[in-house]
Structure formats: structure tokens, C-alpha cells
Design a protein around this nucleic acid. Structure first.
Lengths: 132, 132
DNA sequence: CTGAGTGCAAACAGTTTGCATTACT
DNA sequence: AGTAATGCAAACTGTTTGCACTCAG
């Protein structure tokens, strides 16, 4: 999963979707910016690079990728991770923890849903805010 | 923590906030409807009961409760729980799992943030949707 | 009595949709 | 050529804010 851009584009094509310039640009930007990106951030970055893509197309592409499960568990780099957000400054950082993943897997096998994904978010004060 | 309404109202008073009718109504409704309620659902229920409360007051009350940490880890019934949402029908149900909580506690003690809360959301297909 | 709190309506922010136009295949 | 996909702008949904009025303390 080192080349998510190529993978995503191949999937799109395989499903009969056209590989338009705006679509590719959004996929590429998604890979550059990482997960938990807002539509506006994508638009802004594209704008900075002289590539104008309408917000509607961004939303439509994001929905498409979501439907094809191309953005579910898989971040650009392919690793699975979660978030810690600072109550004070809003800064978001990420973490991974296999102990936690195992607890979730065990739990998933016990519930009556067919679990196919999960999110964990921790809240607290970041080191920077804490030290003032 | 069996009387969350009373507790919340006492806290508000203790902090110098007035116990107005709209404020009380929102707190009461929050207790009735449980967690993960939208502002609109609160407004609708109040409307059904003949109590008209402006949306602005609802948002302001929710923010107030959040600032006082009265809605953080503590649902109306006082138990801490998480959510499973169905990818297909959107239905949300809740669960608690001490194994998971322990994993999170261990993790929290290892990171450099001062963790004071967390959310976990599982995604999947609910039994009903699965069986059709 | 007096200012904290309210309701209203206008302002905002984020997302969705209809439609005429563009551009892959 | 034909139609999927786009951009624009208007429509929506959800949330926030300014201000004159109200009511709890």
C-alpha cells in the first residue's frame, strides 16, 4: 500500500469512473495532506498550486472514494491510526496502539454488528499548552 | 449519579449561573433523550411539550454544560459508553467494555498529553440490515 | 432594580443540488 | 459523438452573533 494514489486511481477506473484532471488532483492532494483534511484545505492547496477545482467536485470525489471504501481504514501512507486533540489549542496529533486495536478486535467479535471499522479520539491538553 | 438533572442544576447555580426556565428545560430534555442528541431534536421535543425555546438558547446551554464538563464523560444515567453506528441504516446503539477502557487508560498514561476524555465509535452493519 | 439570559432574525460556515458547459473515451 | 464529470451559483442545514426585551435573584 505504498502507492495509494495509483491504487485509488486504478480502482476508480476499474469501477468505470473517468480519470479526470480534477478527480486526480483531489486524490493526489488527499495523499499529500494526510487524513482528517477538510474540503476547504484541499481547495486551498489546489488553489495555491494553480489548480482550480470547484468545491462541488471535491465533495463529489470525496463521496466517491468513501463509497468505494478507498478512504475508510486506509490513510495515504497505509497505516491505521487514531487522534488526540488538545482541548485548549485544538492541535491534532496521531497515535497507534496495538494493545488498543486488540481490545477493539475482541470487542468486535462479541457484538452482533458486522464491524468493519472504528475511530478512537482522545481528548486532553497537549504538552505545549500544559507547560504554561 | 442517579439524579443528573439535579446535579447539573446545582452545578450551574454554584457557578453563578441563573436557573432560568429555558435552561432547566434543556437540561431536563437532555436527560430524557440521552446522549448524542442534536440541537434540533431538543427543540422539537420541547416544542411538542408546548415549551418553546429558541435554538440560540439551546446552543448556549449546551456550550455552558460542556464548559462545566457536565456532559463530558457523564451521560444522563451516569454511565460511560460508546457508539456503534450502522453503515447502512444509520442506526446508533451503545456499548460499554471495560477491557477497552483499560486499554485506553494504559495508553493515556503513556502519551505526553494530559488525557481527560475519549470517544470510541465502531462502524459496521447492524443485525437488522445484515439479515436482508 | 439590574444585568444575566432570552428570542428573534440576520450572518456565517459547510455541504448539496440543478443545470448549462466541458472534455474523456 | 455521446455522456460522464465539471464549475457555478443558488439552496440548504447547522451554528453563531447582535440587539432589544425579559425575568430571576
Amino acid at each position: 500500500m505504498t502507492d495509494w494514489v495509483g491504487h485509488a486511481q486504478r480502482e476508480l477506473e476499474r469501477e468505470g469512473y473517468r480519470l479526470s484532471a480534477p478527480r486526480s488532483a483531489v486524490v493526489q492532494t488527499l495523499a499529500d495532506l494526510g487524513c482528517s483534511v477538510t474540503a476547504k484545505e484541499i481547495a486551498d492547496r489546489l488553489h495555491d498550486r494553480g489548480q482550480e477545482v470547484g468545491v462541488a467536485s471535491i465533495y463529489r470525489t470525496l463521496e466517491l472514494l468513501d463509497n468505494l471504501r478507498l478512504t475508510r481504514r486506509v490513510g495515504p501512507s497505509g497505516e491505521h491510526h487514531h487522534h488526540i486533540v488538545c482541548d485548549t489549542c485544538g492541535q491534532v496529533s496521531t497515535f497507534e496502539d496495538s494493545d488498543l486495536e486488540r481490545a477493539i478486535e475482541r470487542l468486535a467479535s462479541r457484538v452482533d454488528y458486522a464491524i468493519d471499522g472504528h475511530d478512537v479520539t482522545l481528548r486532553g491538553e497537549c504538552p505545549t499548552c500544559r507547560s504554561r
